[in-house]
Simulated scan of single mutants.
Amino acid sequence: MEFGVLGPLEVRTDEGRVVRVPEVKVRMLLADLLAHHGQVVPAARLIEDLWGGSTFTARPTASLQAKVSQLRRALEDAEPGGRELIAHRPPGYVLDVPAAALDAGRFRDLVARARSGTDPVTRAALYTEALALWRGPAFAEFADQPSVRPTAASLEEERLTAVEEHAAVRLELGEHSLLVGELTELVQQHPLREGLRGALMWALYQAGRSSDALDCFNDLRRRLDEELGLTPGPSLEALQQAILRHDPVLARPEPPAPSAAGGQAGPGPAGSASPLVGREQDLRAIRTLLLQRRLVTLTGPGGVGKTRLAQATAESLAGAFGEGTWLVELADAGGLERFAGAEALAEQVMATLGIR
């Protein structure tokens, strides 16, 4: 049985069937055990987490046992042996499953493998696969519960760190054009995060937008001073100086080889970048939709690989369209607010296609 915490709480059988866990308190109990995976959570702690200091029940221990029984029954009904996963070990209970049974465990394993690798293409693919496991904020509906909040916050920090590391590898591969839009969105969400700022500055510089890269740095410096009384860290200061002197270390990598459709990476015909691993089902679904509909929109948290997935889909369908597939960067051209009217949007599309 598999458990999902990188988004809304989710339980699936080994065959992939969704398991219904009824009643909020039972789901809260499961979230508590998942947040403390590998640890025995004392019964007194679980009672406090589920009911707080309220006088909801005169028999708190019996009430907890009832919720544990409901959770065990839901797991057993879904898959034989499921009830054994909720083990009683004095002084409380533990969810007895391996780390690989949690999407958070698989995420951490993939990130660790990406960090230990040496080939940037393989590393980028592993980061892409890891970030694709995220379906929304960790523990979603229970993220504000005191018993879950520290774990949820820790997972979000791990996600953002992985996004920053993924961006650094993709910059090595010359994916600066794709990254500008993705990182701009993330910086807006996390304006004081220096790792994201640094990756965006580097991507902007490689895209030929040195002044925008410096503006990005100056905006962070102003925010840090006004909100925290701090200055950017040494690594970001060094990056700013490297941009000012056009340091060769920041030079754009050689672009990837053209695709079969004769395209190239970045604005213009969509071309190949790093291979996409673990997204075959998504690719098939999008290809099917594209052959049935005029418009398909991909949504999801920043940094999970929406742009890369769209690009891979375009590559796989290159032969189905006589004029090939093209990438029109909207965020790379000053932000989506610029395209409030149809005329500006049409001009950007025409400019990409080379139509006067």
Rank of each mutant, 00 (worst) to 15 (best):
L75R: 08
P146L: 10
P146A: 04
P80K: 12
L95Q: 07
F107Q: 10
P137G: 10
L102G: 03
L110G: 04
D109K: 14
E141F: 05
V121W: 02
Y127R: 13
V68Y: 01
V94N: 04
L110W: 09
A140H: 14
G105A: 11
L75P: 06
A140D: 13
G81Q: 14
R89E: 09
A138Y: 11
R106M: 12
R83Y: 00
A138P: 15
A125S: 13
F142V: 01
A125F: 02
G92L: 09
R73N: 04
A66Q: 11
A74T: 01
L102I: 07
E141R: 15
D119R: 14
A101Q: 10
A140E: 14
V121Q: 11
S116E: 13
R72I: 05
E141M: 13
A87P: 06
K67A: 01
Q65M: 01
F139R: 14
A78L: 11
S147Q: 08
P98H: 06
A140L: 15
D77Y: 05
L126S: 00
D77E: 15
Q145W: 12
L64C: 00
R135W: 07
R115H: 06
V121C: 05
F139V: 03
R113C: 09
A66D: 08
V111P: 09
L102Y: 12
V111R: 11
R149L: 06
Y127L: 10
V121Y: 02
A143V: 04
G92K: 11
A112G: 07
D144E: 15
G105C: 14
V97G: 03
A140W: 10
D119T: 01
L126G: 02
A125I: 00
V97R: 08
Q70K: 15
E79M: 14
R89C: 00
G82H: 12
A87H: 05
R135A: 11
L126F: 05
F139H: 13
P90S: 05
E129G: 00
V148G: 07
D119M: 08
L71A: 02
P80W: 09
L133R: 07
A99G: 03
P146K: 13
A138F: 08
T128N: 10
A140I: 04
A125M: 12
R115Y: 02
L95I: 05
A101G: 01
K67M: 02
L95T: 00
V97Q: 08
Y127D: 09
V94H: 04
A138G: 08
T118Y: 03
E76S: 08
F107E: 12
V121H: 12
Q145G: 01
